[in-house]
């Protein structure tokens, strides 16, 4: 057996190495994740300043406000997905990795979700308290954000892959991706609303789950072909 085969790292090892490197990078660039969370809390606390502090009204708009802020924060952190790799040439090596590109994109989105999605989901209930949401509404809010942010990362991956290297790219990504994230916003905010009005958020969260599965199946392939197009 020629030595070339002996050093062959299995597909699993490739995936783990990529995930490990990305999480190591997230750890080394901790300040980026903190800025996303700070942005999230600033945007949320702007609303009471804007619309007034009447508690009943705040309770009504609480879920929607936190969700819109979560959407914008996820949008803010999208460039970290591919743009830094594109700039320093790592993305080319990623595309030349023997493992399927859709899997590579999926792992990048997983790393991005771990770095931004989970912190947003943990932070959301804290900010929900500012709006006087009761405990089960906060629970549904956090669960919704936890399930919604992977969808934002996956659709964001398609957006950033399409606009790699373009001038004014970040603004363009928001223009491309926000309309596609509207169902996530409606279902997420609707879940909190339903939990508050006692209807129970089961329907909304299960639909959000269905949307997550659908996006998990489709988006990596779309992002992979978008990457190939951009690097052509």
């Amino acid at each position: 057996m020629s030595p070339a085969i002996q050093n062959q790292s299995s597909s699993f090892a490739m995936a783990i190495a990529l995930l490990r490197r990305d999480l190591l990078l997230v750890y080394r660039r901790r300040s980026d994740s903190v800025t996303v969370l700070v942005f999230f809390s600033i945007v949320v606390s702007l609303f009471p300043l804007g619309v007034g502090a009447d508690p009943t009204m705040l309770r009504l708009i609480g879920g929607g406000v936190v969700w819109v802020a979560a959407l914008l924060s996820a949008m803010l952190s999208l460039p970290r997905l591919f743009s830094s790799d594109f700039a320093d040439g790592t993305l080319e090596q990623l595309v030349l990795s023997p493992q399927p590109l859709a899997l590579t994109v999926g792992i990048k989105c997983l790393a991005h979700w771990l770095a931004t999605g989970i912190p947003l989901a943990l932070m959301a209930p804290l900010l929900g308290l500012q709006f006087g949401l009761d405990s089960d509404a906060l629970w549904v809010l956090s669960l919704g954000v936890l399930m919604g942010t992977p969808i934002l990362s996956l659709i964001g991956a398609v957006g950033t892959a399409l606009t790699l290297g373009l001038r004014g790219g970040n603004l363009l990504v928001a223009l491309l991706v926000l309309p596609l994230n509207i169902p996530v916003l409606i279902l997420g905010a609707g879940a909190v609303d339903a939990a508050q009005s006692g209807l129970g958020a089961g329907a909304h969260l299960s639909l959000l789950g269905a949307l997550l599965i659908m996006t998990l199946i489709g988006a990596p392939f779309a992002a992979a072909s978008a990457l190939r197009i951009s690097l052509d």
């Binding site: 659709i155 398609v158 399409l162 606009t163 373009l166 001038r167 004014g168 790219g169 363009l172 223009l175 491309l176 309309p179 596609l180 509207i182 169902p183 949307l211 489709g218 988006a219 779309a222 072909s225 978008a226 197009i229 951009s230 052509d232």
Partner: peptide, 30 residues
């Protein structure tokens, strides 16, 4: 906007193709 931002027409066409496909799948969901 995407097609206007991409100078190379071949890349613009293909990028538009991916975006339109993803958009078309999302229209009923939206």
């Amino acid at each position: 906007a995407l097609q206007a931002a991409i100078d190379d027409p071949r890349r613009g066409d293909k990028a538009g193709g991916v975006l339109a496909l993803v958009g078309a799948i999302n229209v009923p969901i939206i």
